[in-house]
């Protein structure tokens, strides 16, 4: 995986809780320290997803407007070492 191109999940078409479910499953597939970029809609999704990710032990590296997509946001997460692992 390239450090400059983290995997991306586009959940702009979804509402909570699916926004974080999609991100959570994508995070489960990463190793600690790897990054995930999430595209999501303004409002509840961008308010809730970073908080949920932080509560699960991930780092929120960026929350910013998504270039070229009015009303959308880009969130970059880094999987935390202490995040609850998916059961094998």
């Amino acid at each position: 995986m390239s450090a400059s191109a983290p995997p991306r999940v586009d959940v702009r078409a979804y509402a909570c809780p699916m926004t974080y479910v999609k991100a959570k499953i994508a995070l489960e597939r990463l190793a600690a320290g790897e990054r995930l970029e999430v595209w999501l809609a303004a409002g509840e999704p961008v308010e809730n997803l970073p908080r949920s990710a932080a509560e699960d032990g991930h780092r929120v590296l960026a929350v910013e407007p998504l270039a070229g997509a009015p009303g959308a946001f880009r969130v970059v997460l880094e999987k935390g070492a202490g995040a609850a692992p998916e059961w094998p």
């Binding site: 809780p17 699916m18 974080y20 479910v21 999609k22 959570k24 499953i25 489960e28 949920s52 699960d56 609850a84 692992p85 998916e86 059961w87 094998p88």
Partner: peptide, 23 residues
């Protein structure tokens, strides 16, 4: 897991440590 199942079990999938493989 497809979106239909994800939506159906979304609340359960949010439980820490409980993910796609567990479902």
């Amino acid at each position: 897991m497809n979106d239909e199942r994800l939506e159906r079990y979304a609340r359960q999938l949010l439980v820490p440590g409980f993910g796609e493989a567990a479902q």
